[in-house]
Nucleic acid binder design. Sequence first.
DNA 1: TATGAATGAGCTTTCATTCAT
DNA 2: TATGAATGAAAGCTCATTCAT
Lengths: 187, 187, 187, 187
Amino acid sequence: MRTRDLDKQQRIKKAIVTVILKEGINGASVAKIAQEASVSPATIYIYYSNKEEMLAEVFKEYSHESYYYLMEQMQPEMSGKELIETIVRGFYSYTVEHEEAFSFVEQCSRCPSLAETVCETECCCDVFDLIHKYQEMGIVKRYSDPNLSAVLFSPVRFLAMNSRSMHFNAEDQLAELVQMMQDLLLN
Amino acid sequence: MRTRDLDKQQRIKKAIVTVILKEGINGASVAKIAQEASVSPATIYIYYSNKEEMLAEVFKEYSHESYYYLMEQMQPEMSGKELIETIVRGFYSYTVEHEEAFSFVEQCSRCPSLAETVCETECCCDVFDLIHKYQEMGIVKRYSDPNLSAVLFSPVRFLAMNSRSMHFNAEDQLAELVQMMQDLLLN
Amino acid sequence: MRTRDLDKQQRIKKAIVTVILKEGINGASVAKIAQEASVSPATIYIYYSNKEEMLAEVFKEYSHESYYYLMEQMQPEMSGKELIETIVRGFYSYTVEHEEAFSFVEQCSRCPSLAETVCETECCCDVFDLIHKYQEMGIVKRYSDPNLSAVLFSPVRFLAMNSRSMHFNAEDQLAELVQMMQDLLLN
Amino acid sequence: MRTRDLDKQQRIKKAIVTVILKEGINGASVAKIAQEASVSPATIYIYYSNKEEMLAEVFKEYSHESYYYLMEQMQPEMSGKELIETIVRGFYSYTVEHEEAFSFVEQCSRCPSLAETVCETECCCDVFDLIHKYQEMGIVKRYSDPNLSAVLFSPVRFLAMNSRSMHFNAEDQLAELVQMMQDLLLN
DNA sequence: TATGAATGAGCTTTCATTCAT
DNA sequence: TATGAATGAAAGCTCATTCAT
C-alpha cells in the first residue's frame, strides 16, 4: 500500500495560501491550487472532502498561527509597557514575516461562510490568559475582552493591510501606536 | 426616456449589494444580480463594461457612503467628547442601518483586486478635515492620520462583524469603547 | 432579442434519444448529447434545468408516443379479433419503425428514478378506453386492467427486445402471439 | 487462506447487488461497491479485470438464479394446472424474496452492453426442458419457446415492477393471471 | 493477496460575456 | 436601449483504474 505523502499534504496547504494571495479567494480554484502543488485535482479530494471544508480546515490552522507566534515573543516578568509593545509589534511582525498566511486569514475571515467556522476568541485565548493576569495584577485596565481584542489587533491589521496604499512609514506609525495603546490600556 | 434608464441602473446597483449580502462575493454572479434587478444580463453590460468594473464602480460609491452618513450626524459646536462619541456611535449605527452596504464594502475591501481601486483615505477626508480642526484647537491629540483612522474605525468594524459570533451586548461594548476613545484621543 | 430556436430544441430531443440508443443510459453524458445536437452543453441548460429533468421530460413525451401510434392504427367497427391483432401488431410495428424511441423508453422505464416520473397507466388510457368498450359489449373478457396491460404489451416488448439475440422469425412469432391473445382474451 | 478469499469475493458480489438496488446501475461506482463490501477498490481488480466484466459475470450468475429457484418449487407428478401455477407464482415469489437480485438482473438486462452477454434462453433451459415434457404429453399446448417465454415471464415481471406504482392487490392479480395462463396454455 | 494513495479523463453545471433581434 | 438565447471556458467533483508498498 502506498502511504500518505506528508510532503504532498504540506504542499497542498502551502499552495492554497499562495494561490489565494495571488488570485484572491475568488480566483482560487481547486485546479489552480492543484497545479501550484504539482498534484492532480483529484488528489486534493483525498485530503479534504470538498473545497469549502478544505478552506475551512486550513483557515482554522492558520488562524491560530499568529497567536502562537505572538506567544513565542513573550518574555517572563515583562512590565506592562513591554507586554503591550510585544503584542503590537509582535503581531505586526507576524503580518510582515508571514505575509501569505496573514493575507490568507484576512481574506477568509471576511468570507461569511468561512468566518463562521472559526471563533476569533478561541484562537487568541493564550494571549488573553496572559492579559487577564496583568489585569489581575492591576497593571492592565479592566476593559472587556471584545474591546481589548478590537483595539489591540484590528488597528494593527489595518496598518498592515494599508501600509502600501497609504504612503506612510510603518515604523513611525507603529511606534506611535504602541505609545497610544500603552496610554490607553495601562494604569 | 431618461427616468427609465436611471431607474434601471439604480436597480442594478441595489441588486449587487443585496445579492452579495445573501450569497457572498463569491456567489454573486452576473446572472443572479440581473435576476434580482429584474433585468437581462445583457443589460448590465450596457451600463458597465465588465463585472470587475461594475463591482469597482459600485464599491467606490458605497465606500464613501458611511462617511457621508457620519457627517450628517455631526452637529456644529460639539465638544471633543461629543465628536468622538458621534464618530464611534455613528459609524456603528451605519453598520446596523445599512447592513447590506456595509457588508458589501467590507467584502470588496478584502478582495485584493478591488481594494486597490479605492483609497480609504480619500473616502473619509471630510471626517478628517473635521478632526484636524479639533486638533488645531488643541482638543484632539495630534496623532497621525493613519493611526487615528486605525483606532477610530477598525475596532468598530470589528465589533460590528463579530457581534453575533461573539456573544456580547453591543450597547455595553459601544459605551465602553466610546469612553476608551475619548480617554485616548482627547487632551 | 434572439428568439428561441425551435429547431435547436428538436435537435436536442433527437440527440438524447440517439445517444442513449448508442451508448446506453449510462454512457449518455450531457456533453455527448450536446455534440450530437451540434450545440454547446450550456445551451441544453437553457431548455432543461438539469440532466435528470431533461431525461424525465423527454421520457414522458416518448412514453405516450407508442400509444398515440397505436390509436392511429385503429379502425371503427373492428371485430374483437381485429382489435387484438391491431394492438399486438401495431405495438410491434412501433418498436420496429421507431426503434430509437422505443429503446429509449425501455431504458428509461427500467431506471428507478426515471420510472417513477411516468405512470404507465396514464400513457395508454386511450387504448384502455377502447378495450373497456369491447368489454362492455361482451367481446373482450373482463380481466383486470393490470393483467390486460401485462399480457398485451409485455410479451410484445419482450419479443421486440430479443428478436436479435434469440434467433427466430419475428413474423412467425407475431402471428402465433396474435392467435394466443385472441384465444385468451375474446369470448 | 482460501476461506478468506472466497469470503471476500462473495462479499463483493453481494455488495454489487446491494448498491445497485440502492443507487441504480448509474450510481453504482466501484468505490461505493468496495466500501459496501469493506474492501479496497484495488482488491476488486484482483477478482475482475474491469468494471464491465465484473457486472457481466455477476449478472450471468444471478440471471440463472430465478430459474434455479423456480425448479426447486417443482414437484414430481404435477398436473398441468399445477405446473403453470408453480411457474407463475414461483417466479413472482422470487421477485419478492430476492428483491435485490431481481432488481439487479432487471437493470442489467436493460443495459445494452450487458444484455448481450447473457442469453435469456440459456438461463431458463431447465424450465423449458420440463415444459417440453408436458408438451410431449399433450398437456401443454405446442406454442413456440419464445412465445412461451414471453407470456409466462414478462407479465409477471411487469406486475412485480409495477405493483407499487399501480395500486393493485398483488395476490388478486396473481390469482387471475394464473387462471389466464392455465386457460391459454393447457389443452 | 491486499491495500489506500494517486491520477487523467470525464462528469454535471455555472460562469462572464456576446449575439441577433 | 434592451433582451433572452447562446456559448467557450472553467468551475467543483467523481470516476475507473493503476501505483507503490
